[in-house]
Amino acid sequence: MTDAAKEFIPVNIAVLTVSDSRSLSDDKSGDTLQRMITDAGHVVVDRQIVTDDRALIRDHLRAWIARADVDVVISTGGTGLTGRDVTVEAHRDVYEKEIDAFSTVFTIVSMQKIGTSAVQSRATGGVAGGTYLFALPGSTGACKDAWTEILQHQLDYRHMPCNFVQILPRLEEHKRRK
Rank of each mutant, 00 (worst) to 15 (best):
V94M: 03
V73M: 09
G78W: 00
C162F: 10
V86T: 07
I49E: 10
R177A: 12
C162Q: 07
I9K: 14
A14K: 03
D46P: 02
K113Y: 11
Y157S: 13
K6R: 15
W147S: 01
G129R: 09
D145W: 06
A123R: 03
Q34L: 06
M36F: 03
S117H: 08
C143D: 07
E149D: 14
A63E: 15
V109T: 10
T104M: 06
L81I: 11
Q154D: 11
V11H: 06
V44L: 09
M111H: 13
V165F: 13
E96I: 00
F164W: 15
H60L: 08
G80Q: 06
S21A: 08
G80C: 02
W64I: 14
S25H: 06
G77H: 02
I114T: 10
L56S: 15
Q48D: 14
T17R: 05
I167F: 08
D3L: 10
V94W: 04
A5H: 10
P10E: 14
Q152G: 15
Y132L: 13
K28W: 01
A5P: 00
Q166K: 14
T148C: 05
H91V: 03
D20T: 03
G130N: 08
A142S: 09
K113G: 02
S19T: 05
A63D: 15
I99M: 13
L155I: 05
P161W: 10
Y95A: 07
M111N: 13
L171A: 12
W64Y: 08
R22A: 03
I37V: 12
V11E: 13
C162V: 11
V43S: 11
A128Y: 02
D26S: 06
G138I: 01
Q112M: 09
A90H: 04
A128E: 01
I114K: 07
S139G: 03
E98S: 06
D85T: 03
F8M: 11
A90F: 01
K6Q: 15
G130P: 08
V165G: 08
L136P: 00
T17H: 05
D93E: 08
E7L: 14
Q154F: 12
S19I: 01
G138E: 02
E173Q: 13
M1R: 14
F102E: 13
G41Y: 12
D145N: 07
Q48A: 15
A90C: 06
H159P: 00
R67D: 10
R170Q: 14
L168D: 10
D59L: 03
L81N: 03
K178W: 00
R58D: 12
S110R: 09
K97C: 02
Y132P: 08
S23I: 13
G41K: 15
A4L: 09
L81H: 03
V94Y: 03
R92E: 11
A68D: 15
G30L: 09
T131A: 13
A118G: 05
V50A: 10
V44F: 05
D59C: 03
A123Y: 00
D100L: 04
T107C: 10
A68P: 00
G41I: 12
G78R: 02
Y95I: 01
V72F: 02
D156F: 06
I57P: 06
D46T: 04
R47N: 07
P137N: 11
